[in-house]
């Protein structure tokens, strides 16, 4: 009982601590954007930037206001759930995000599931069959995967599975995940996204497993004659998973943030691609919105990871 209420209190605390994080992120983005050369109005004005037109655009976008007023206006809007209007599309930022965030989440969740499934399985097996050919091959394989750039893998997979074999479509999102078409479309980008994470997770799982296997209590268990399989899967796995889960949380955040290139190559209608686009077009409200949302999702995911800690490792206390 006491433990549950502690965890609840911890959740509330973390939710409250989300506020300064989000505020910090938004101030930082705002400042970086202010330092960035390039005039949003100029980019909207077309090939011939008529001075009168530039002035009109700046006024309509509120860019003629002093910086602190601009930020204050943004903040007041944000508190009321209004993240402003995209300079580029003229649509509310919140709508732009609402249409795209689910697709990026979909991609990252499928990617993470693949990475965990493949990575942890391969890592555990490698630890179990330590110093065998399987172990060696898994570790070499993971090294190769981790050292290939995402866009390169993306192109190779596309050329192989879309062009040569014609199994999977080369771009776009099909339907929702409960449709065959949805899966056919998500598979290539998700696998591309998962590869390096799977490799990193496999290596860490193995390292962590080996470390735990070397602990005294495991040795004691072995000495007592507990079978190897039981030692590996029952006694070791749970403890070895703690660093793996931390890293998986971080990896998930990386995935969310770094889908940009994969979204571009596979023309996936997600949020990262629009974020990159927004930086190029100096679409300040859109950059703010994308960064804030990705940040919030990321923080929430990490909160979950921290909570999992408590269940996995009772030695860590919250107080």
């Amino acid at each position: 009982m006491e433990r549950v209420s502690r965890v609840l209190r911890h959740i509330v605390q973390r939710l409250i601590s989300l506020v300064p994080v989000v505020l910090g992120v938004s101030v930082t983005v705002f400042l970086i954007l202010q330092l960035t050369p390039g005039d949003p109005a100029r980019l909207l004005a077309g090939q011939v930037p008529d001075p009168q037109v530039l002035e009109n655009i700046r006024r309509e976008l509120g860019l003629d206001q002093p910086i602190h007023i601009q930020y204050w206006n943004f903040l007041v809007g944000a508190v009321q759930g209004d993240l402003g209007t995209s300079f580029r599309s003229g649509r509310p930022v919140i709508d732009e995000i609402r249409t795209r965030l689910p697709f990026t989440l979909e991609l990252a969740v499928v990617g993470m599931a693949i990475a965990l499934l493949v990575g942890v399985t391969a890592g555990v097996l490698a630890a179990y069959k330590r110093n065998t050919l399987y172990d060696l091959l898994t570790m070499i394989g993971s090294l190769i995967f981790v050292s290939m750039p995402g866009f390169w893998v993306a192109l190779l997979l596309m050329l192989a599975f879309s062009l040569e074999l014609r199994w999977l479509p080369a771009s776009g999102r099909g339907g929702p995940l409960w449709t065959v078409d949805g899966w056919r479309h998500v598979l290539l980008p998700a696998v591309t996204l998962s590869l390096s994470s799977a490799a990193i997770l496999a290596r860490l799982t193995r390292a962590s497993m080996v470390e735990v296997l070397n602990q005294d209590y495991i040795k004691t268990a072995r000495a007592k004659g507990v079978p190897n399989v039981v030692v590996v899967f029952k006694h070791t796995l749970k403890n070895a998973l703690i660093p793996v889960i931390t890293l998986a949380g971080i990896q998930f955040g990386d995935m969310l943030a770094n889908t940009a290139i994969i979204e571009t190559v596979f023309a996936w209608p997600g949020i990262s691609r629009v974020g990159v686009q927004a930086i190029s077009s100096r679409d300040f409200p859109m950059v703010q919105g994308v960064v804030l949302f990705v940040a919030i999702v990321f923080v929430l995911v990490n909160m979950l990871v921290d909570l999992l800690y408590v269940f996995l490792d009772p030695r860590i206390k919250y107080d």
Partner: peptide
């Protein structure tokens, strides 16, 4: 359909 990468466009056309 927006497809920014030239290679992807060509693969889509060929397939």
């Amino acid at each position: 359909k927006p497809i920014p990468e030239a290679t992807t466009q060509l693969v889509e056309l060929e397939t």
